[in-house]
Design a protein around this nucleic acid. Structure first.
Lengths: 79, 79
DNA sequence: TTGTGACTATAAGTCCGTG
DNA sequence: ACACGGACTTATAGTCACA
């Protein structure tokens, strides 16, 4: 499931990338801030990783945004 | 790390429990809606599990709330 | 500076049960 | 209806070398 194109993970990753670029950070710089690996951040941004809640918060913290703002672009079909 | 008291996971779990009870659902009923295991939901609510983004969305979908509302009670220290 | 595939260790998550 | 545990399978975390 890690590498399958899950639109949720893709939306999350795009959001991270958007916020990172707004701050003119490299993946490496963001990774450093978050205490994560550079390539891991890249994988997250490409929607290849099903990120855990801990890491969502680490990344949001590194970006100086509340964690829920990283989920803002995720739309789940309500019935 | 599974059983350590991470306040982020605890806050998330409490929020899930709160919303579940508002809907008068049992853990089993919620698990069924979300396509997850009954005991897993219990562990999540007790803050014992580091939930993945996919499962955050599954649970939020089962509760009929947007995923970011499950993170609303999580406050990360901004510097 | 980033994309990518491969890799190992550990945690996620399931399924069975108990009180 | 829930907490909790053991044993189990599968996914994620986290890192690396290289394109």
């Amino acid at each position: 499931m890690t590498s399958s194109k899950d639109p949720i993970l893709a939306a999350f990753g795009s959001r991270v990338r958007q916020l990172r670029k707004e701050r003119s950070l490299s993946q490496e710089a963001l990774a450093d801030e978050a205490g994560l690996d550079r390539s891991y951040i890249g994988q997250v941004e490409r929607g290849e990783k099903n990120v855990s809640l801990s890491n969502i918060c680490r990344i949001s913290n590194a970006l100086n945004v509340p964690p829920q703002s990283l989920l803002e672009t995720i739309y789940v079909h309500q019935e």
